[in-house]
């Protein structure tokens, strides 16, 4: 279980990385960030690039910075960097919670925020919270910088809208709006495993009714998605167990082509999406009530 041969480059600057990328056939280059998903594929020879382009020497891609109403996380910041960031903790407890749910400390020490986004694993937490929060993903390529809405970034299984020759440089995570209750929950066969199904819920309560409800289901199909039908059911309504259950049912109905594998059938996943939708809404409501008190 050893990788096929490849050439290796670890440029110190983004410009050099982009130059290397432009000089090579993009299909023959794999970009290495934390490597926690790519290295197993290399070891199994399921990925076999001519050139491995290691971004981890590029200092400018690291770090967590405050913007006006968002946090900018460098694509090469590790999950551990996020975990240790009081800025993220203060501005966005949902993003923090999703961080510590990922894998195990040994994985978070090395795995990067950008890597998880670009890997676009349908069962991963980061794409789901990025979609829920409306994060922006910033890419640099031969044509300069491009800002992509999270919902437009994730296409399907392991596929994003990054163009060949582009490198993800930054993730801008909007601050959790004041008064927002939130929840992220998942079911996985074991603690730390990729989710069979997960859900993210956000909502605010104004005058006793739900405002700006957001529901994202992940792990259940080809990518993390919001569920507008269910969100529409909630908006302007008084929260109740019955309402959340009907939102869950709407999610289950609108879930397209659920994944079917050894751990869960499509029907089971559909039902788990219903259950987790209701459970996360319920927890989000409790948090919203808590913040409004």
């Amino acid at each position: 279980m050893k990788p096929a041969p490849f050439e290796y480059a670890a440029p110190p600057t983004l410009d050099e990385a982009l130059a290397i990328l432009s000089e090579n056939d993009p299909d023959e280059v794999k970009i290495l960030a934390g490597g926690q998903s790519l290295m197993p594929l290399l070891n199994m020879r399921l990925a076999r690039p001519e050139l491995l382009l290691d971004l981890t020497r590029i200092d400018e891609l690291g770090g967590v910075r405050a913007l006006d109403s968002a946090v900018s996380i460098g694509a090469l910041a590790t999950k551990r960097d996020v975990e240790d960031s009081s800025l993220v903790r203060d501005r966005n407890p949902l993003f923090m919670e999703s961080t510590v749910m990922i894998g195990h400390p040994q994985i978070r020490n090395r795995g990067t925020v950008g890597g998880s986004m670009v890997q676009a694993d349908p069962a991963a937490e980061y794409p789901a919270v990025a979609v829920a929060l409306g994060a922006e993903l910033v890419a640099r390529g031969p044509g300069g910088e491009r800002v992509i809405e999270a919902d437009d970034f994730f296409i399907t299984y392991l596929t994003t809208s990054l163009e060949p020759g582009e490198i993800l440089t930054e993730v801008r995570v909007p601050d959790l709006p004041a008064g927002t209750g939130w929840s992220i929950q998942e079911v996985a066969r074991r603690h730390g495993d990729f989710a069979i199904v997960g859900a993210v819920a956000m909502l605010r309560l104004e005058s006793g009714v739900c405002v700006d409800p957001r529901i994202v289901i992940f792990g259940a199909s080809d990518r993390a998605r919001r569920h507008p039908e269910a969100e529409a059911l909630l908006a302007g309504e008084r929260p109740s167990a019955a309402l959340f259950e009907s939102a869950g049912q709407a999610v289950a109905q609108s879930l397209e082509d659920p994944t079917d594998d050894v751990h869960a059938s499509a029907d089971y996943r559909r039902d788990l999406a219903r259950v987790l939708c209701a459970r996360t809404l319920s927890e989000a409501m409790e948090r919203a009530e808590g913040s409004g008190a």
């Binding site: 197993p40 066969r189 074991r190 603690h191 730390g192 495993d193 990729f194 594998d261 050894v262 751990h263």
Partner: peptide, 16 residues
């Protein structure tokens, strides 16, 4: 075989 990695053949961790 459908369970050829430790992602799919699941042994208990300390949590289980």
């Amino acid at each position: 075989p459908q369970t050829t990695t430790f992602m799919d053949y699941l042994m208990p961790t300390v949590y289980e």
